[in-house]
């Protein structure tokens, strides 16, 4: 973590330490090809979503580069894979991935863990960049409800939403191949809305019910 004693120019200069951390994390991803992570590994060998939330807070509050290196090590290779599956060349996917991760740093103060998991939030950044770069299109966004996220969202809400997000991921992974493939293709941008509407057996009810409760809670707070 960088301290206040460093000059402003140094706070944004890559340090050997963080670069090493990132390359370690990358190597791990390359060799194991799994979602194993050096720290905060749960018994199921999956990274703990609450740990990512803490990392985002460290980036926001302390410009913590080692926390950023860990987030980068886990998510950047997945963002790149997602962009390539969505039609980007490896070079373009690499460039866009770097932009997405830089956006995560710059907008860390906008991340609201009561509304989204870190992977959901990164997905929305990556999707928006994809629309911008690959489709050269504007994407109107809904009006913000409030002035950014609340300073201290309720920890219970955060925990509930993070757990529901994890369960949703498990529910999707457990779907029969055909159904899961349809969902994945929709998110690669391969299906139009009419094709999604016509796709029979798209198990939207099943996958969504997982996260319904947490979001219902959120919705009632908004009213």
């Amino acid at each position: 973590m960088l301290t206040e004693t460093l000059t402003p120019t140094k706070t944004t200069t890559p340090t050997a330490h963080t670069a090493l951390l990132a390359s370690k994390a990358l190597k791990q991803n390359k060799t194991q090809g799994d979602c194993t992570h050096e720290v905060n590994v749960t018994p199921a060998n999956k990274p703990d979503r609450m740990a990512w939330v803490t990392h985002l807070a460290a980036i926001r509050d302390n410009q913590d580069q080692s926390a950023f290196a860990e987030v980068f090590g886990y998510f950047a290779p997945r963002v790149k894979a997602f962009l390539m599956k969505s039609g980007a060349s490896p070079d373009l996917a690499e460039d866009v991935t770097q932009e997405v991760m830089a956006t995560l740093w710059r907008k860390a103060h906008m991340f609201d863990p009561a509304k989204a998991s870190v992977s959901t939030w990164i997905f929305t950044i990556a999707r928006n960049r994809r629309i911008d770069v690959l489709r050269k299109q504007r994407r109107p966004e809904p009006e913000d409800l409030t002035w950014g996220p609340e300073a201290e969202p309720d920890q219970e809400d955060v925990l509930a939403l993070q757990q529901e997000s994890a369960q949703l991921g498990e529910a999707i992974a457990a779907l029969p191949d055909k159904q899961r493939e349809l969902i994945v293709r929709a998110y690669y941008g391969e299906l139009t809305h009419s094709e999604i509407a016509d796709a029979t057996g798209l198990p939207l009810g099943t996958i969504k019910s997982r996260i319904r409760l947490a979001l219902d809670r959120l919705r009632h707070q908004l009213k």
Partner: peptide
């Protein structure tokens, strides 16, 4: 709005499940 967050969560899960691509 709440339903949109649900669908974004599905997108996050799809991305999270990708086999990592080397950088």
């Amino acid at each position: 709005r709440a339903r949109m967050h649900e669908f974004d969560t599905v997108g996050g899960a799809v991305m999270d499940a990708e086999a990592p691509e080397g950088l």
